[in-house]
């Protein structure tokens, strides 16, 4: 009854009980390993703890750099110029100047075409009103802090200087003397 010998010369459907799993492998050293007899076990523990630590570090880094407000809103009609000596962006109202219109944080605040047609530097009334309202709102929200007067102009590279000067002057007289121009970064030579 031992060693898988047949009980008779006829094929019998019932075989002698015993270990079957992986015993059919002919290479002895492989068989020895896989059936667990002798040598070191083939089972391996995956080192999950350092993996979790790594994941946690990534999560913390991404959470720290997460911005709920998303990318700075750039009007699709504005193609910005690039500059080498640019500095980091800051939080301030954004005035977008496209080839056709002027927008403050996405709200229409004047027409570029009208300024070009008039061919004179002028105060843009709608823009002035919106910026003044924003300033008043800021002062109501932070009554004890001095108003910084920052505004960022997001101007298309093809817009003529006349329009830029008009927007610049309007912003300055609406109480925003610290004007910045949004640009892309150009690598320094």
């Amino acid at each position: 009854m031992s060693g898988g010998k047949p009980l008779s010369r006829f094929h019998q459907p019932i075989e002698v009980p015993g270990r079957r799993l992986l015993h059919h492998i002919h290479l002895n050293f492989v068989k020895k390993k896989v059936v667990g007899g002798g040598g070191r076990s083939m089972n391996q523990e995956i080192p999950l703890i350092p993996f979790i630590d790594f994941l946690l570090c990534i999560v913390l880094f991404l959470l720290a750099s997460f911005s709920a407000s998303g990318e700075l809103p750039i009007d699709k009609n504005v193609k910005l110029p690039n500059a080498m000596n640019a500095i980091e962006m800051m939080e301030a109202p954004i005035v977008a100047v496209t080839a056709t219109q002027i927008l403050v944080d996405g709200i229409p605040a004047g027409s570029t075409r009208a300024i070009i047609d008039s061919n004179t530097k002028q105060k843009i009334e709608e823009l002035s009103e919106i910026l003044k309202n924003k300033r008043e709102l800021w002062k109501q929200l932070k009554p004890n802090e001095p108003f910084p007067g920052n505004v960022i102009l997001q101007v298309d590279r093809k817009v003529p200087a006349l329009v830029v000067k008009s927007v610049f002057q309007t912003a300055a007289f609406a109480g925003y003397p610290a004007v910045s121009f949004m640009v892309g970064r150009l690598a320094k030579e």
């Binding site: 750099s65 990318e71 700075l72 980091e88 800051m90 910045s180 121009f181």
Partner: peptide
């Protein structure tokens, strides 16, 4: 954690915008 990493990577923002100052 993997789901969180994937969400944060997809929504991550790396801004390349800068500014040039001028004062009135």
């Amino acid at each position: 954690l993997l789901c969180l990493v994937m969400f944060l990577l997809v929504t991550a923002v790396w801004s390349h915008m800068a500014r040039i100052e001028a004062d009135a």
